[in-house]
C-alpha cells in the first residue's frame, strides 16, 4: 500500500540551515548536509530544501549543497526557492535533486510549468502554492506570492487545477494563515485542493502536534505532510510520529 509521507523542510541560506537546530548532536549544527543525513536515517520519507538565499550570486552555493546532499542521502529530495528559469532547474537536477519546486515565478508565467514538464518530466516539477483564506474567492482561498506578501486575486483551487493540467507532478500546499502558528494544518484548504485534483498534495504550515498530522491525513486527504521547526527542535520525533500514525491506521513506512 502506498504510504503517506512525512517530510522535514530545511530552510537554507548560503548553504547553511537558518532555523535554529539545537537538539542534534551534529558536528556542525548549521550544516544542511549533516541535518539531511540525520533525517534520512531517522524516518524521513523525503526532504525539502528551501533556498532563501537573497542574491543570485549565491546560487552556486545551493548547487554545491545539492551535490553534497545527493552524495550522502538515499531518499528523494526537492529543492525550491527563487527558481525562475529552465537553466536554474537544469543545474539543480544535474546536481542530484530529484524534484524542484516553483512558486511565484510560475504564477507570473504559468507557461514555465509545461516547459519544465516536457523537458524534465512532470515527476520532478512541484508547484509550491501558498494560499490564504479569502471569502471573496470561489474556493474560499486566494493564491499569494512573494512569501505571502502579495495577493494575486487568483483562486487557489483554480490555480491548483490549472497547474495540474499544465503538467505539474505534485503540489506543495502551504497555508499562510496556519504557517508558524503550530495550531494545526489548514484542513479545509488541504481537503478542498486534494479532493479536486489528481496529483499528490503535500500539506504544509501549522504543524504543532502528532494529532495535527493525523488530522491532515484523515480529514485533509493529504498525500504527505511537511513541517520544519517541530522536527528541528525535536518537539516531534519522526519515528515516534510514524508509529503513532500507523497505530491510528494511516499507512506509514516504518
Amino acid at each position: 500500500m502506498l504510504t503517506k509521507r512525512i517530510i522535514p523542510c530545511l530552510d537554507v541560506k548560503d548553504g547553511r540551515t537558518v532555523k535554529g537546530v539545537n537538539f542534534l548532536n551534529l558536528r556542525d549544527a548549521g550544516s544542511a548536509v549533516e541535518l539531511a543525513s540525520y533525517y534520512s536515517e531517522h524516518g524521513a520519507d523525503e526532504l525539502v530544501f528551501l533556498d532563501i538565499t537573497a542574491t543570485v550570486e549565491n546560487r552556486g552555493t545551493m548547487v554545491q549543497l545539492v551535490c553534497d546532499v545527493a552524495d550522502r542521502i538515499s531518499i528523494p529530495f526537492t529543492v525550491g526557492g527563487g527558481i525562475r528559469t529552465k537553466d536554474d532547474v537544469d543545474r539543480l537536477l544535474s546536481a542530484g535533486a530529484d524534484k524542484i519546486s516553483v512558486n511565484s515565478a510560475a504564477v507570473r508565467n504559468p507557461g514555465m510549468i509545461p516547459e519544465l514538464a516536457s523537458q524534465f518530466g512532470s515527476q520532478c516539477v512541484v508547484l509550491a502554492l501558498d494560499a490564504r483564506r479569502n471569502p471573496a474567492m470561489p474556493s474560499g482561498f486566494e493564491t499569494v506570492i512573494d512569501g505571502g506578501r502579495t495577493g494575486t486575486g487568483l483562486d487557489a483551487l483554480s490555480w491548483a487545477e490549472q497547474a495540474a493540467s499544465l503538467g505539474a507532478g505534485e503540489i506543495l500546499l502551504t497555508s499562510m494563515d496556519a504557517d508558524g502558528t503550530k495550531n494545526g494544518f489548514d484542513v479545509d484548504l488541504t481537503s478542498i485542493i486534494s479532493s479536486n485534483i489528481v496529483i499528490p498534495v503535500i500539506a504544509s504550515g501549522g504543524a504543532g502536534s502528532k494529532e495535527d498530522f493525523l488530522e491532515i491525513f484523515r480529514y485533509g486527504k493529504a498525500d504527505a505532510a511537511l513541517a520544519a521547526s517541530v522536527f528541528h527542535f525535536r518537539e516531534i520525533d519522526i519515528p515516534e510520529l510514524k508509529a503513532y500514525l500507523d497505530d491510528e491506521g494511516i499507512p506509514m513506512r516504518i
Binding site: 500500500m1 502506498l2 504510504t3 503517506k4 509521507r5 520519507d45 523525503e46 512532470s122 515527476q123 507532478g169 505534485e170 486534494s194 479532493s195 479536486n196 485534483i197 489528481v198 496529483i199 499528490p200 486527504k221 498525500d223 504527505a224 513506512r253
Partner: peptide, 15 residues
C-alpha cells in the same frame, strides 16, 4: 487511470 483516490503519478513509498 487517475482519480482523486488514486492519483497519478504513483509517487512515494510502496511495499
Amino acid at each position: 487511470p487517475s482519480s482523486a483516490d488514486s492519483k497519478v503519478p504513483h509517487m512515494g513509498w510502496n511495499s
